Computed example of a mutant assay.
Amino acid sequence: MDQETAAMLDHVRNVLQDSGAHGFDHTLRVVRLCEEIGAREGADMKILIPAAVFHDIARPLEERTGVPHEEEGARMAAEYLEAAGCPADLIAGIVHAIHAHRYSTGIEPGTLEARILSDADNLDAMGAVGIARTFMQAGERGTGIADAADHFHDKLLNLKDRMYTGSAREIAGRRHALLVAFLEALEDEAQTRPLSVPERK
């Protein structure tokens, strides 16, 4: 890892102090996936890696105020990168990738780097990590198993068909299979009649 990336990660870590479904560990996994997919797809890493580092920096602000984190995160990234002397053309590519990464915004990623960031972010919602994050989110919201199962149907099972790159589709196939197997087992067990519990005397 180069010194610039390490400095960016330290900056983001200071903002994302709390752990959780969108904590700093999520950022690190997305960066790792971007490194892997970007190398295979021939991405410009000077755009892709900063975009991955900053993509969720404004999550805490969104949770407090409701401001879309992809918009504020792009602004925060641009501010940091301008101060660090990053070239304007690179900043434009980074900002676009952050703007377009979110599943629910409907903004079409217009560059390879933006497509890879979207893929990496979605991949981290799949497989074993995706399962763990889903239940973390349910706990954060104060909901339970039924809410988590709904999230599988509403979002996670759709992610495999939203991958832009061949490299991500390959990874997504394996992670999707695990999601399906887990959800089938979960729904089977959740529908089991509970054992009768004797009344207290």
Rank of each mutant, 00 (worst) to 15 (best):
Phe152Cys: 01
Leu159Glu: 04
Ala190Trp: 08
Leu156Gly: 00
Glu189Val: 03
Thr143Asn: 02
Arg162Ala: 08
Glu189Gln: 12
Phe152Ser: 01
Ala146Tyr: 07
Asn158Ser: 12
Ala146Ser: 07
Gly173Val: 07
Ile171Phe: 09
Arg169Trp: 11
Glu189Ile: 03
Ile171Cys: 01
Asp154Phe: 15
Ile145Glu: 15
Gly144Lys: 14
His153Pro: 00
Met163Ser: 02
Arg162Gly: 02
Asp161Gln: 11
Arg175Met: 09
Lys155Ile: 14
Tyr164Asn: 12
Leu156Lys: 15
Val180Phe: 03
Ala168Tyr: 12
Asp147Gln: 08
Ala148Pro: 03
Thr143Ser: 10
Leu157Asn: 07
Asn158Gln: 13
Arg174Gln: 10
Thr143Tyr: 00
Leu186Arg: 05
Ala185Phe: 12
Lys160Ala: 13
Ala190Asn: 08
Leu156Ala: 06
Asp161His: 14
Gly142Gln: 04
Arg162Asn: 12
Lys155Arg: 14
Ser167Lys: 11
Leu183Gly: 05
Glu189Ser: 08
Met163Ile: 07
Gln191Phe: 10
Leu186Met: 15
Ala185Leu: 12
Phe152Tyr: 14
Ala146Gly: 01
Asp188Phe: 15
Arg162Lys: 15
Asp161Lys: 10
Ala148Glu: 04
Glu170Asp: 13
Ile171Lys: 09
Glu187Asn: 08
Leu178Pro: 01
Asn158Cys: 05
Ala185Met: 13
Gly142Ala: 05
Arg174Phe: 03
His153Lys: 06
Glu170Asn: 07
Ile145Gln: 12
Ile145Ser: 05
Ala190Asp: 08
Asp154Gly: 02
Ile145Trp: 00
Thr165Gly: 01
Ala177Ile: 01
Glu189Lys: 12
Gly173Met: 06
Leu186Pro: 03
His151Met: 06
Ile171Met: 11
Leu183Arg: 11
Ser167Val: 11
Tyr164Met: 01
Gln191Leu: 13
Gln191Ser: 15
Arg175Val: 04
Arg174Ile: 09
Leu178Ile: 07
Lys160His: 13
Ala146Arg: 13
Asp154Gln: 11
Glu170Trp: 05
Ala181Asp: 15
Ala168Phe: 10
Gln191Thr: 12
Asp188Glu: 15
Ala148Trp: 06
His153Gln: 02
Arg174Ser: 09
Gln191Pro: 00
Glu189Cys: 05
Lys160Met: 05
Ala149Glu: 07
Thr165Phe: 08
Glu170Leu: 11
Arg162Pro: 00
Leu156Val: 00
Ala181Ile: 07
Ala185Ser: 14
Arg174His: 10
Asp161Tyr: 14
Leu156His: 09
Ala146Glu: 12
Lys155Met: 12
Ala146Pro: 00
Thr192Pro: 00
Ala146His: 08
Arg175Thr: 11
Asn158Phe: 12
His151Leu: 08
Asn158Glu: 13
Ala172Phe: 10
Glu187Ile: 06
Ala177Phe: 00
Ala148Val: 05
Ala181Val: 10
Asp147Lys: 03
Thr192Met: 15
Phe182Thr: 02
Gly142Arg: 08
Ala172Thr: 08
Ala172Lys: 03
Gly166Cys: 11
Leu157Val: 10
Ala177Val: 04
His176Arg: 12
Asp154Leu: 10
Ile171Asn: 00
Leu178Gly: 05
Asp150Ile: 04
Leu183Thr: 09
Thr143Asp: 04
Ala172His: 08
Arg174Leu: 06
Asp147Trp: 07
Leu157Phe: 10
Asn158Pro: 00
His176Asp: 15
Tyr164Phe: 14
Ser167Tyr: 10
Ala149Gly: 00
Ala148His: 06
